[in-house]
Design a protein around this nucleic acid. Sequence first.
DNA 1: GATGAATGAGCATTCATTCAT
DNA 2: CATGAATGAATGCTCATTCAT
Lengths: 191, 191, 191, 191
Amino acid sequence: MSTPSRRPRADAGRNRARVLEAASELFAERGDEVQMAEVAKSAGVGVGTVYRHFPTRQALIEAVAEARFAEILAFARAECLSTPDAREGLKRFLLHIGQVHEDGRALSRSIETALGSTAPRGEVGAELRELGAELLERGRGDGTVRADVTVEDLYMIVGALAAVARADWGDWRRFVDFQMAGLDPEVAGRP
Amino acid sequence: MSTPSRRPRADAGRNRARVLEAASELFAERGDEVQMAEVAKSAGVGVGTVYRHFPTRQALIEAVAEARFAEILAFARAECLSTPDAREGLKRFLLHIGQVHEDGRALSRSIETALGSTAPRGEVGAELRELGAELLERGRGDGTVRADVTVEDLYMIVGALAAVARADWGDWRRFVDFQMAGLDPEVAGRP
Amino acid sequence: MSTPSRRPRADAGRNRARVLEAASELFAERGDEVQMAEVAKSAGVGVGTVYRHFPTRQALIEAVAEARFAEILAFARAECLSTPDAREGLKRFLLHIGQVHEDGRALSRSIETALGSTAPRGEVGAELRELGAELLERGRGDGTVRADVTVEDLYMIVGALAAVARADWGDWRRFVDFQMAGLDPEVAGRP
Amino acid sequence: MSTPSRRPRADAGRNRARVLEAASELFAERGDEVQMAEVAKSAGVGVGTVYRHFPTRQALIEAVAEARFAEILAFARAECLSTPDAREGLKRFLLHIGQVHEDGRALSRSIETALGSTAPRGEVGAELRELGAELLERGRGDGTVRADVTVEDLYMIVGALAAVARADWGDWRRFVDFQMAGLDPEVAGRP
DNA sequence: GATGAATGAGCATTCATTCAT
DNA sequence: CATGAATGAATGCTCATTCAT
């Protein structure tokens, strides 16, 4: 006689994840036009639940952005810190970032619009900065990257790359090549 | 249904200019939050007049963007094509663009949001591309710029710079330096 | 961006009815000039609620029209299918329709303007057609109505009557008399 | 040296006619959505000129309507007053009216919306009433039309027919048949 | 906790009409 | 007389956010 309730024990955190996942997909596909109610529906919850976990639309987008940064961070740790030379690791890092933004153009634009920038934030942001520092440190170590490049410099380049990859201005891989050239120790100091 | 007009018949095209000017200032200051009615008021005309000259909000923003590009074009023609060496001209070009976007951050964001990109469009866009070609040609001539750089490459860099300068990721002048380094003929071809 | 709600959670479908009722009255009184906001206010809800139940202004008017048709249907079932002779039933039907349109002239005009016609639509429309068929069938049965009259014919007459009753061209009851005369079996076939 | 001016001696009344003609066509095609500026353009004049001749949009529509009534009047005088029997003349009258409304559905709707009715007005309206009286008088004379039919009755029927013909409820010619039947002297007085 | 109905400020856009030139 | 640029009130609709149930 007791029909099982539809979503019986969807414990708290589970819902957060579902919402985040739904939001990630929707924003990646349709960008800023997705509405909170759609996210809720797609996640199989009510709007109220979305708001329980993400107090504002902006917070949700922030969280989606952070999730993407976390992915990037994981990739970089696995693939960019252990390359034969540091230069190679750095390039892989940039190529991955370009790819992520190309694949999620609409999302990137939403982030830009909602947060005013695609720069990494929060905890993951801090870890990314650390990671960037390590990439540069390695470069300084083996002499394959200009020694005067700061983490701030690197993330300007990353931000620029994000903009290039989400736009349709040409082959962003060429842009990466230019950045790698600009980071070459040989040319440091040219006017 | 309407109340008698207050300041009628102010010379045809004059109003277009006033609206454009007002819009330029307002968008530069407050970005996407400015409303059509504000623009009208600030220009001293009715909304209808704004719409007569710019059929949609997006068209207005497009026009403001184009005006900015026209300024850049004029600057570049005057200051960047006659430098002692081509590299210097190119650098001045980039520095000017960075400055324009730093000074009009809010506007740059509005353009990005409304048009999806800050890339030059239309007639002025075409002229800018030509100008870019000349800048690069000069560089090929005196050997101060990588010979394989295309106009498309250049405008990827310009777009990237626009993103960097309107954001707050660090000193965009440093970014310009990296780009100049990347465009150095010496490093062309490094992996 | 919004202010806290004032009268929340008033039972789901109850609100739909209140809106419909308010709209019916307002449109009957003042016709096409009523605004969505007025309907909302008069129903004691926010505009958003009106739009939740009726996605567009036209949809609201359609619903009001349908409600009126439903009334007519109910009347006809109760009063027109059980008259001594079918002719009498048909006449009562027409008289009721004329009365409804006379009483809600402004509404009838709104419907005409918004929907392009006052013809019954949707589900209720289908039931009305069935009812019309029954009325005619009865007439064929007792020989009080021309046998060649189709439901389509009948609803042309009904539509015509609606137009006459909502206009001010004369006593629409006279018009009904002419229609009854025209439906008389005696004259069928006259040139 | 003197280039002929474009429209040199477009004397007053000529423009009125051009505007009226343009308006007739446009309203017949696209109905209420035509704007005053379009009418002006289509007539090859400025909006101001349209307003000189027709002080409001409604006045313009009224004039277009009147022109149509004038056509009907002319037709009726030529074709309906001289038929062998009066009944035939009356029928031709109705058929012509139906045709006019079928051909100019959009216009008919505009008139209905703007003026609240498609009933003939003004001077032409008066003449049409007279004409209607004559048609009925002839019918009384040769006994082919119910003697108790008034001009008001006739114009209720005409208005109804206009509604039927401009709608898409069925074959309005059938409706005309029913009206003719209803006007038959044989059935006068049936309940 | 979860739900989703309710809220309502906000805003781009339209178009009949006017009147300086 | 003709022109057409200017006017601005009017209005349907959206959607992030709240909170009674």
